[in-house]
Every structure is written in C-alpha cells, then in structure tokens.
Write a protein that binds this DNA or RNA. Structure first.
Lengths: 341, 341
DNA sequence: CTGAAAGCGCTTACAG
DNA sequence: CTGAAAGCGCTTACAG
C-alpha cells in the first residue's frame, strides 16, 4: 500500500523546508509568489492533500461541531439541522450528528463521545426522557460550549435558542377571536414539557384578555400530539352539547386530524369550526382546507444555534456564556380560518 | 487557561509509564487488574478523557464517515441519514453531514473537504446538476471508499444502494390491473433521471404483459414531481374524453394532489379512479382516502449504505470494490385502491 | 523570504 | 505485567 504523500515528501522534491511548504499552502504573506506557485504545482502533481487530522491535532482545533437530536427524520429537526449545516458550512465547520432516540442512556453515551475534543461545541435538543443535566455539566467543565434548542433545560443556565411559545399561542388564539369565534378549544401537548405548557398559557391569556370564559370541556391534553390522539380528541369535542367554533392546536398533526374528523361529520371548516395549528409542517399546505398555523422557523433556529455556538467557540473568553435567543414566529393565515362572512 | 489533563499527567501522578496508562484505558489484557483500577480511578478523579484527535492521528483512523445529500430536510434523505447514523453509531463511527443543495460546485467543494483523511469513507446521493464524476475519482484515487444511493451514477462502476424501481413500478401497475382498472395512466418524473425512467419502463412493461394498449394521452412527465405539477397533470387527465380509471404516480406528492383534484370534481376514489403513489411519505397515511404506495424503505437504504461502506473501510484489501445492493420494496395497499365491488 | 527544531498527545513494536 | 523510545504529519516561535 502506497503511503499518502506528506508535506515532507513535497519538501524533499522541491528542496525546501517543510515549514516553507506549509506556509506556501496557507498562502502566508511571507512566502514569495514563485515559491507558492512551485509548491502548488507540485502538490497538484503528486496529488497531495494536507492531512487534516495532523493539522487539527497540532492546532488543537477540529472545526467540527456536534449535534444531538432525538431523531433526524422528524421534519422539524431535519430543518434545524439544515440550518445548522448551512451556517457551519459557510463558517468552515463540519457538522457531526447523533440521534438520542429519546433515550437518556444513549444521550449520555453521546456526550461521552463528544467529550474528547472531537467537537469544539455541541448543539442539543433534549430527549423526552431527559430530566437531569449532569452529562452536560461534564462538557461545560471541559469548556466545550453548548447550545440547546427547542426542548431546552428549564432552571438550568445555558445557551438556548427558543421561540416565544406563549406569545405565538396568544396570537394564534387572538386570531380565532378576531375572526369571530366565540367558543374556542385547545388540543395541547404534555404539560410537563415547557413548550406545550407555554402554548396552553398563551391560549388562556388570550381568552382572558378578551373576556372569554375558560371552558375546561374544550381543552384536552394529549400525550404526544399524535395524529391519532388528535382524532380522538376531535371526536370528543364533536360530541359536546355545546361544540367549539374554533380550536387552537399545539401542532399540525392534531390540527389535521381534527379537520378530517369534523369534515367526515359534515362540519364546515372554517365556517362552523375554524382551526389553527402549530409548526407549519408541509402537510399544512396540502390538507384541504389549507391550515392556518404558526411558522416556527426551524431553519432559522438552526442558523441561530450555529451562529451562537461558533461565536462562543471562537471567543477568547474562558468563561462559558449563557445566552438566550428568541426566534420570531409568524402566524400564516390560510383557509382553515378564512371565514366567508 | 488550564491545560486539559493528558496521559502524561496521569502517568506522573501514578508513577507509571504513559504506555501503561494507555493500555489500561484500553482494557488491554497484559495489564494487571489492580493497575487498571488505579488508572480508571485517577482518570475519573482528574476528569481525564483521552484526546481523540491525537489518537486518531496516531492510529491513522478517524472512525468518521461523510455523507453528502442534496438536502437534509427532504424526508427521504432524513430517513436515509437516520439509517446511516443508526448503523454507524453501533459500529462506533461518527457521521458528518453535508448538503450539496443540488449544486455541482458545492458538491465538488465538499469532496475536497473530504479528501484530507477526515472521513474514512463517503456516502453520497448525487445532486440533480451532477453529470460528471471527476470529483469522486479523486476520492477513489486516495482509496477512500464511496457508496452512492438513490441517485447513483449510471455508466460508472461504483458501490450503489438502490431499489428496483422497474420492478416496483411493475408491481404497482399490476396491482391496478388486478383490482380491475382498464385505462391506466402515469404521472412520471424527469426521464433523464434513471430512477424515474425505470419507473416508467416498469409501468409500460406491466401494461404490455397484460395486453393493455399504451395510450400516450394517459402519460405525463413532470419536471420535479411537485405537488403543483401533480395538480396540473390531474386536471389534464380529468378533461380527457376518455378518462383513466387508475393512475400510477412516481411519487406521493403528485398522487396526493391528483386525489385532491379528482375529489374536488366529484370523482370517487378509488371506485372511479384508483391511485398508487411511490415512497410511502407520512402524507400517504393522512390523505383521505389513505394512499396505496410503494414503501422505498429509506431507513434500510441508509443502514445498507453504512454497512457496505464500513465493511470496505475495514477490509484489508487495497482495491476498491464495486458492489450493488438492491433493497426490496413493498407495495402498501391502502384505501386509494380498495374498491368496493 | 526561508529554515531548523521542537513538540502537539497519543500508540505500539520492542525489550525485559 | 510494565517501561523507554520512536514517531505519526503537521505548525509555529525563533533565528537569520
């Protein structure tokens, strides 16, 4: 097996020092243009590419960031990763991805893998099982910057990229009020998860502001906001004596299944019941009527996470900073709330 | 700034040689259990983790594979990446991802990044612009194993993970024939892309086998199989004097929009027109009626790609092998082809 | 503008 | 079972 060409090989060929070759390849100002050209040509000729591992080792920089997501194939996360990759690529960083699959055991093991200087920083969305943060403490102690997004640790100081769930839910609910809904229901997620609790709180606050009473019968929490759970809740709402005429759902899957359940029961959407979802999933533009929903701007979250992380990696400071970035959401109004009056 | 603890620090603390520490941490058989325990305890105490860059550099192994996809946020690719990550994780490899965004320029630049030994192997799905493979030749010359999936180079010997598009389309079409369709149409993708051409060929072959004439009016090719293009084609099919009673679509987006267009025109699905899609996207289980489609088993493609790549990385052979792995698809029959007769 | 030398933190073949 | 030594391929501070 032929050995890969090294700097030294180039140096010998050209009767130059390895240090000169290294500088020439870096386009260092203190190297003559002629030498640079000779080196570049020879490198091309011998098919030389610098061994980046040796370089990383020597410079103590890997230009790599690690990303831990529960699952890559969840659209939200794939969008965030896309944003991370986009920003990182332009900044010259590589992105290494890991799936925790919502297992705290696997999440912990991944943090161990990331401890050994392979990644200069880590971006994480916590798994559902995760309720302690010791495994991240270790990274902190090693001065590896961390940025959390979406499912972030509560009562734990850290860099966080979030959206304003409370405010987004407030606006979504207010939108239903503005189009004339009088009895507004909510299909929510697990209240032990911060973001879903915030969405519920925002919903309640909008009702209160406009002097609407809270009818507990119109509020249902699901375990994981699944399509199937959405249908179950929708059926319950349908069978109420006093049905809702508007529903704010904490995600798009439940909103879509609610639409389908209502339609099957000959209820007109949006005129009899108007629906708002959350997340702006591709399905929201396909379901008929198209779904009004909150765009959570996942790609921008990813960009922001990478931007913050890389800034902290490159900062000279020795102290790990804690910063919270809130990404602005927008309500996308579509047919599911466009009443013909 | 405090220096990270190194092997040498541990060695000094314990009055042992660095080599002994290294072996103890590796659970090397030739080290006494007592020494191992001492080393492990001290490592824990000093918060020592091995510098994996130094280790990679020394061993000339990074245990990292690179993945180039057009876009991460396309569901198919996120599923493939999930499969790659799953297999790689279990095999002790890390996965670094890059998006070519269908730009050959960016794809080429990424292959340059991957040339410098950072990745021991590369998995790629070609971008739509890519029609030459020089940039991959370079990786070949450096003996970095390559595995292509989905959009693979034609007339270029390489490792490829594919599905049998021809056969899958054949079976999907035959299914339409079996349920009683007499005039079967096709919404296809660009015929300059191998997989879409194969699907069309499979469609034709099924018609031929069962003695059905080919009616060119029932076949339409789109540029990128988008939801919007699907609707346009569906409208054309709808306005034909002699409408189809079954349609095989080369993806799920066009199938879904066709369903919606027909429904809006009061055509009953599946009884008047039956529809089959391709890919088993999440939407296929949500659209009503649920869509019959070909499960292309993207996760398994990813697993297979990682398996093949890692095997070639670890093989001693100096020659790069070329292997083609065909992943078995399955037709998932749902309501869009369940006729009540 | 170029070179000689030291050294990054490991691993491993060799020796005992 | 343990150690001493060499060296992986770069980069950089220093010297001239």
């Amino acid at each position: 097996m032929k050995r890969r060409t090294t700097l030294k090989d180039l140096a010998k060929e050209l009767n130059l020092a390895a240090s000169t070759i290294s500088r020439a390849l870096d386009d260092h100002p203190g190297i003559s243009p002629e030498t640079k050209e000779k080196v570049l040509n020879k490198a091309e000729e011998l098919g030389f590419t610098r061994n980046s591992i040796a370089s990383s080792f020597r410079k103590n920089k890997t230009l790599t960031i690690g990303v831990i997501v529960p699952r890559i194939d969840i659209h939200f996360h794939s969008l965030v990763i896309s944003g991370i990759e986009e920003f990182a690529y332009k900044a010259g960083y590589n992105v290494t991805i890991f799936q925790s699959r919502d297992s705290i055991k696997r999440e912990t093991k991944i943090t161990k893998i990331l401890q050994n200087k392979m990644s200069e920083g880590v971006i994480i969305c916590l798994g559902t099982e995760t309720d302690s943060y010791e495994h991240f403490e270790k990274l902190n102690r090693l001065k590896i910057p961390l940025v959390f997004y979406d499912r972030v640790p509560s009562d734990y100081e850290a860099n966080k990229i979030i959206i304003n769930d409370y405010e987004s839910a407030f606006k979504a609910t207010e939108h239903l009020i503005e189009i004339g809904c009088k009895r507004i229901g909510h299909i929510g997620g697990s209240q032990s998860t911060g973001i879903f609790k915030d969405r519920y709180e925002g919903f309640k606050a909008a009702l209160t502001k406009h002097g609407f009473p809270m009818d507990k019968k119109l509020v249902h929490f699901t375990r994981e906001l699944s399509y199937e759970e959405g249908a179950l809740v929708a059926k319950k709402l349908l069978n109420l004596e006093n049905r809702p005429d508007g529903i704010f759902c904490s995600n798009d899957y439940t909103a879509v299944s609610a639409i389908q359940v209502f339609q099957k029961n000959n209820i007109k959407i949006p005129n009899e019941i108007s629906i708002v979802g959350f997340s702006n999933y591709p399905i929201s533009k396909i379901i008929e009527p198209h779904l009004t929903t909150v765009n959570d701007r996942a790609f921008e979250m990813g960009m922001a996470a990478a931007r913050l992380l890389i800034r902290q990696i490159e900062e000279e400071e020795d102290i790990i900073q804690s910063e919270i970035v809130t990404i602005k959401t927008e309500l996308i109004v579509r047919e599911s709330t466009m009443r013909s009056s």
